[in-house]
């Protein structure tokens, strides 16, 4: 591969990035707009950020979203990890194919259907819609994502280290907590983060399963946008984008450092 920039390469990169980021850039730009009109530039201002923090409705919604995300991601991680363990470890049980199909079905199920069916269930069993139902719904649909992430780690997991632990006197329970869990922990953590993110930006399922007093941030933003886009919403979105971007960049830097360190260690080991 030559390091030279051909004109074609430059054009394709510019086009690609413009396609991806132009909408976001415009949104961020207009969050600093002094004018109330969303599409007319009236000078730089951060007043919308100020008024955003005065908007109790949005802040409440953000708080609900965070709580739902935290609880549902945690529960989905536990369930998803257990499902992944069962699917990779006990490969010969009856109905395994059915089970794995059923665990992964929500991945491809249209959200509208998932939302509707959950709504019907909650109505049928007489569960009042609110914080609990949203959380349950999020656990349901994010669990399978966790299962996929953890399962892919377990497939490359060297079972002989578990056998070695048992050989050295560790009971199966101890082996799980002292060996298996620490080794697959990175996958579990990234599963949790995925579930948390999915819960944060879910609108469809939340709309179906949420009730009064449990409005999530995406629902709040959507309902406000229907009344007209205010720069306040732009500011809220900009903050969300900044949060996500910082998270993603930090994670990739940490990963990269760890990788470099590992490579260096391995080279050092080969020399000794």
């Amino acid at each position: 591969m030559s390091g030279k920039w051909s004109r074609f390469n430059i054009v394709s990169i510019v086009l690609g990035f413009a396609f991806l980021y132009l909408p976001i850039v415009i949104l961020v730009l207009f969050s600093f707009n002094a004018s109330k009109l969303v599409t007319v530039w009236g000078g730089f201002s951060i007043k919308w950020y100020y008024s955003l923090f005065q908007n109790q409705g949005l802040i409440d919604a953000a708080w609900v979203t965070l709580r739902v995300g935290f609880i549902s991601a945690t529960a989905a991680t536990v369930l998803g990890t257990l499902a992944a363990l069962a699917l990779t470890r006990y490969t010969r049980f009856r109905g395994r194919v059915l089970f794995s199909g059923m665990v992964f079905a929500p991945l491809v199920m249209p959200e509208v259907i998932t939302g509707l069916s959950l709504l019907l269930l909650f109505v049928a069993i007489g569960l009042d819609r609110g914080f609990l139902t949203v959380t349950l719904a999020h656990i349901t649909f994010s669990m399978c994502f966790v299962a996929v992430v953890v399962q892919s780690r377990l497939l490359t997991f060297d079972r002989s280290i578990e056998e070695a632990a048992m050989d050295l006197g560790a009971t199966p329970v101890r082996t799980f907590f002292q060996i298996t869990l620490p080794v697959i922990l990175p996958a579990i953590v990234s599963g949790w983060m995925l579930a948390f993110t999915l819960s944060l930006d879910d609108l469809v399922i939340a709309s179906f399963t949420s009730g009064p007093g449990a409005t999530t941030l995406p629902m709040k933003i959507y309902s406000q946008v229907r009344l007209g886009v205010t720069p306040e919403i732009n500011a809220a979105c900009t903050l969300l984008i900044a949060l996500v971007a910082i998270g993603v960049i930090a994670a990739s830097i940490v990963n990269k450092r760890r990788e470099v360190q590992r490579l260096r260690d391995e080279q050092a080991a080969q020399r000794t």
């Binding site: 060297d158 280290i161 056998e163 070695a164």
Partner: peptide, 9 residues
């Protein structure tokens, strides 16, 4: 063990 099966962590 053949693969040594050392605990990586």
């Amino acid at each position: 063990f053949q693969s040594y099966a050392l605990f990586p962590h």
